[in-house]
Computed example of a mutant assay.
Amino acid sequence: MSDSWWSSIEGEQLAQGDLLADCSVPIVVDPTPSAGEDEAKEVEVVSQRLIIVTQSCDLENGKVQFVALCPIHTLDEFAEANAHYKSPKNWEGVRKGQKASLHMLASPEAPEDNTKSLVVDFGHILSLPIEYLTAHAATLGGRSRLQPPFLEHFSQAFARFFMRVGLPSSIAPFK
């Protein structure tokens, strides 16, 4: 396997496919709807590893105030929270792209070792202010950026997750 999945970068410039460690993510503690508009809600801030899904051209041209990101986990981390994935055989469908909400990427540290792969959860999308992310990126030192053609494959998988259409019926099978 080629080790060209990722490049190492530094600085505040952001691009689609950037892996950002230790991002502060607000989580609403009590998701019950408020009775009044001005009612305060308790928010917990957690640290997560995220990958940018916003298009690079939108980031470069200042077209977004908020950046779309998805959590990215090691296989072990994801399996800990999702019992179905504790069995290695269940990862094969993800690797093949058969699970629309998940996308597997090679590890930046050991791309040849599939047990070190990372999984992106497209079913959990969040956005954070671009000002926060650029400042945070500058403090990280080195970080990983997904490279072509793996970046385009990742972007296409993200798009496929959203463009799915369920039909109420279909054409009968040919016999």
Rank of each mutant, 00 (worst) to 15 (best):
M1S: 09
D3I: 06
W6N: 01
S7R: 13
E10M: 09
G11I: 12
E12R: 12
G17W: 03
G17C: 09
D18W: 04
L19D: 01
L20C: 10
L20D: 03
V25E: 02
V25F: 08
P26D: 11
P26H: 07
P26T: 13
P26L: 14
I27F: 04
V28M: 13
V28W: 06
V29D: 09
D30M: 09
D30A: 10
P31T: 15
T32I: 13
T32V: 15
T32K: 14
E37H: 07
K41M: 06
V45H: 05
V46Y: 00
V46S: 07
L50D: 00
L50H: 02
I52D: 01
I52V: 15
T54M: 05
S56N: 10
C57L: 11
D58I: 13
E60S: 08
E60A: 15
G62A: 04
K63S: 08
K63V: 11
K63F: 14
V64G: 00
Q65W: 04
V67D: 02
A68R: 07
I72E: 01
H73A: 12
T74N: 06
D76C: 08
E77W: 07
F78R: 00
A79P: 04
E80R: 10
A81L: 10
N82H: 15
A83W: 03
A83I: 12
H84C: 05
S87Y: 13
P88T: 15
E92R: 15
G93V: 02
G93D: 12
V94S: 04
G97I: 11
K99V: 15
S101N: 08
L102T: 03
L105F: 05
L105Q: 02
A106G: 00
A106P: 00
A106Y: 01
A110E: 13
P111H: 12
P111C: 09
P111T: 08
E112G: 05
E112A: 09
N114I: 12
L118P: 02
F122E: 01
I125Q: 14
I125D: 01
S127W: 05
P129C: 11
P129I: 04
I130T: 13
Y132G: 03
A135S: 15
H136A: 07
G141A: 11
G142H: 13
S144F: 01
R145G: 01
L146S: 02
Q147V: 02
P148H: 04
P148Q: 14
P149Y: 08
F150D: 01
E152I: 08
E152W: 06
E152G: 09
H153W: 00
F154C: 02
A157I: 06
A157V: 07
A159H: 07
F161L: 09
M163V: 05
P168L: 12
P168E: 07
P168C: 08
I171C: 09
P173H: 11
P173Y: 05
F174V: 10
